[in-house]
Amino acid sequence: MSNGFGQVDGRVDLELIAGMISPGCRVLDVGCGDGDLLALLRKQKGIDGRGVELSQEGVNASVARGLAVVQGDADTDLTAYPDDAFDYVILSQTIQATRNPKAVLREMKRIGRHVIVSFPNFGNWRVRLKLLFSGRMPETRSLGYSWYDTPNIHLCTVLDFASLCEELGLEIEDALIVTGDRSRRISNPGPLSNLLASDAVFLLKRQD
């Protein structure tokens, strides 16, 4: 799935996600693009990986590099997978482009023991200032689209996401925020991280 992120951001995002995954496990990457994350995880962690990707170019590129990827839509095709099919189900820079993020997260929670979601934070101070001072929809390094052609139809903030997780019974196991070129671990998503984060990565699991 295409997203509005520059290559530097995208790479950082993949490394952060890779750091959350234990070796040798079963991983499903939803919206896997050209398969960069799956290839990285295969190399670094020896995972048994699968991917779902909407764009045909992304699927073909992934399969051509030997990855098990199917053409499919996060909004409709996750229902085919059985319960607990994977150790980790990942949604990397894709949730904001889904039609029904809540339903997608619910499916991910069903099919994976852990869920990893990374997304651009619309609560970031730069975004807020741009809207405040220019009165126009913000375009940032992370969100480089005009309002009328963006695939990012369901943007949210770190606080929005945290409250959706609570509503869905997803416990936050780990959370990282990206600020500038650095990332840091946060114990609890609060107003300050919501202001500073340009991106966030959440590791989630079902609440007992």
């Binding site: 699968r50 045909q56 699927v59 098990a68 199917v70 085919a80 997978y81």
Partner: peptide, 18 residues
């Protein structure tokens, strides 16, 4: 077929060629 294979969490790739 892809959905059936997904339903058993099989190792499946699926490409539609233009």
């Amino acid at each position: 077929v892809v959905h059936a294979l997904n339903a058993v969490a099989a190792n499946v790739s699926f490409v539609e060629i233009n």
